[in-house]
């Protein structure tokens, strides 16, 4: 289980048409992720983090090379197949939460299960469990508008996790949150990563997030500049050591 390959990227190139020519957003990316990783893509703005995450989420297809996610070659999937792959196996967490404002917290979390046409009893159990993971059981009937940013992001974590996907992709999940809430949601995700073995892949600028990552891939101008595994991250690591680790790293840079 621990060594199961989740993502296999080979010589990936992504170009976007711009005017008469192309803009190369990603170039020569070769990366592999195994089940249970808690990894992040970091790098300056425009370095291609979101683009890479989208390709892994089969929301986009490569210009060259291959992206194999959970055994599926993304470029070969039809619309329907890639939708099914996301529906059953990939959870998304967005910087802007992207909750449905007209739905209650409960309904928002239930949404992916309804898409999967799960039965009512199974849905209820899964939703309550997911809300419990993020500590929002008591807000099940609230509307997103009645929640704080941190709570909204926790709802969106529950929504991503409720279907127990193999992979969760989170693009700048803490960018709109203050330090306390950022730590809280990352700790929540870290815990789920450990308890459920879900693979998490982040795109982030946030040093607070980086402190929790067990693998940091630095992108620069569409290329992998570094792929490192911070030393002190291990199975038994506590949340507080991760926090300290983050502090240490920040201090080291200064």
């Amino acid at each position: 289980m621990e060594n199961k390959q989740i993502i296999d990227i080979n010589n990936l190139v992504k170009r976007f048409p711009i005017g008469d020519g192309y803009f190369t957003a990603l170039q020569g990316i070769t990366l592999r992720f195994v089940a249970g990783e808690f990894a992040g893509l970091v790098g300056p703005s425009g370095s291609g983090k979101t683009t890479l995450l989208n390709l892994i989420g089969s929301l986009d297809s490569p210009s060259e090379g291959s992206v194999v996610v959970l055994g599926h070659e993304v470029s070969r999937l039809s619309h329907r197949e890639s939708a099914a792959l996301r529906n059953y196996h990939i959870g998304f967490i967005f910087q802007t939460y992207n909750l449905l404002p007209v739905f209650s917290v409960y309904d928002n979390v239930e949404f992916p299960l309804l898409l999967q046409k799960r039965d009512a009893v199974g849905r209820r159990k899964a939703v309550m469990e997911a809300l419990d993971w993020v500590g929002l059981s008591h807000k099940a009937q609230s509307r997103p508008a009645q929640l704080s940013g941190g709570e909204c992001q926790r709802v969106s974590i529950a929504r991503a996790m409720v279907k127990r996907p193999e992979l969760v992709l989170a693009d700048e999940p803490s960018a709109n949150l203050d330090a306390k809430n950022s730590h809280h949601i990352i700790q929540t995700m870290k815990r789920l990563n450990r308890e459920l073995g879900t693979t998490f892949l982040f795109a982030t600028h946030d040093e607070k997030v980086m402190g929790y990552l067990d693998r940091i891939i630095s992108l620069d101008d569409g290329r992998v500049a570094r792929d490192e595994r911070p030393l002190c991250v291990n199975e038994a690591q506590s949340d507080s050591t991760a926090e300290e680790n983050g502090h240490a790293r920040r201090q080291a840079r200064i």
């Binding site: 619309h79 939708a83 099914a84 996301r86 529906n87 998304f92 992207n98 449905l100 898409l115």
Partner: peptide, 13 residues
């Protein structure tokens, strides 16, 4: 963005 979210969650176009 809502449409994109539906697609990301696995709805077909």
């Amino acid at each position: 963005r809502e449409i994109g979210t539906y697609m990301a969650m696995g709805m077909t176009r």
